[in-house]
């Protein structure tokens, strides 16, 4: 391992960095390595409350890793992630920051929800149980209330009549819509969408994207979205980040990124995905 000069424990951390900001999410010099492979390389960006940000870029460019770091499914190598003005990947100890403990994360992670590429519904539960178990056990929502909310959410995703079905009885697109309802049932401030249509048959993609468009229009949930659906990114997001090799190659509003990309990397990437799309 190369000696690093930005290790959290050595350097007096700018504890003010993330907290001064009005941003909801701040990535502050974030580095993620898997062994010798650097997936995210000194990444800095922030997301405002209510903002919808789409991450695009070739596979292996680190987009999914960003979502997984935020969801605490991966441990950060260097740098700090801030959420709502508080350190999130780390916690304060004395003057500095140390890696967050499970207890610290448990108190904060409920602000964030995630929808996965492979849905990850629980096969041992019905659709209803998939949606209500976490609110009931984690948030302490009364069961009646959780049930009412589950029915509302299933209506929102157009699956009201499937409430007592098992996940295995649903198509991929239906499963993904249930997974969206499950994430929303926790009433997260931040919703992470990790290539949510990549595992679906082409004819099922539109249904899932329509649900997400509806969520985007009717709520002020902050969204971070990794997707290869460029038209969805254009319609829904406020800002697009183009990633390449663990760094932001270009960022801007969707009209600019899709209409007038400046970087060669962006141009060639867009050309390759749009060729596949049409």
């Amino acid at each position: 391992m190369p000696p690093s000069d930005t290790t959290v424990n050595e350097e007096p951390q700018g504890v003010g960095d993330g907290s001064q900001d009005q941003s909801l999410i701040v990535f502050d010099d974030v580095v993620k390595r898997f062994g010798d492979l650097t997936v995210l390389d000194d990444l800095n960006f922030s997301v405002a409350p209510g903002e919808r940000v789409t991450l695009i870029g070739p596979s292996g460019s680190g987009k999914t890793t960003i979502l997984r770091l935020l969801m605490t499914l991966e441990k950060i190598t260097e740098g700090v992630i801030w959420v709502g003005g508080e350190p999130f990947s780390h916690m304060r100890r004395g003057q500095g920051l140390v890696h967050a403990s499970e207890g610290y994360l448990r108190a904060r992670r409920k602000r964030i929800g995630m929808v996965f590429q492979q849905f990850n519904l629980f096969p041992n539960m019905t659709v209803r149980q998939n949606i209500i178990e976490a609110p009931v056990h984690v948030l302490g929502t009364p069961k009646d209330e959780a049930n009412t909310r589950a029915e509302e959410l299933l209506d929102l995703v157009g699956l009201g009549e499937k409430i007592d079905a098992h996940p295995t009885q649903l198509s991929g697109g239906q499963q993904q819509r249930v997974a969206i309802a499950r994430a929303l049932a926790m009433q997260p401030e931040i919703l992470l969408l990790d290539e949510v249509t990549s595992a679906l048959d082409p004819e099922l993609v539109a249904g899932v994207l329509d649900v997400l468009r509806e969520v985007a229009e009717t709520t002020d949930i902050t969204m971070l979205c990794v997707t290869h659906e460029m038209s969805f990114a254009r319609d829904v997001s406020h800002r697009v980040l183009m990633f390449d090799q663990g760094r932001i190659a270009e960022e801007g509003p969707p009209e600019q990124i899709f209409g007038d990309p400046r970087e060669d990397r962006t141009k060639s990437f867009l050309r390759s995905v749009l060729d596949n799309d049409f």
Binding site: L73, R109, G113, F116, N120, F122, N124, M125, V138, M186
Partner: peptide, 21 residues
């Protein structure tokens, strides 16, 4: 592993994850 990750995303505790999923 994906099942466990889904329980993390729903902020279940270790005990809840074991018992429910």
């Amino acid at each position: 592993k994906a099942q466990v990750e889904a329980t993390v995303a729903l902020n279940l505790s270790w005990f809840q994850r074991m018992r429910l999923v």
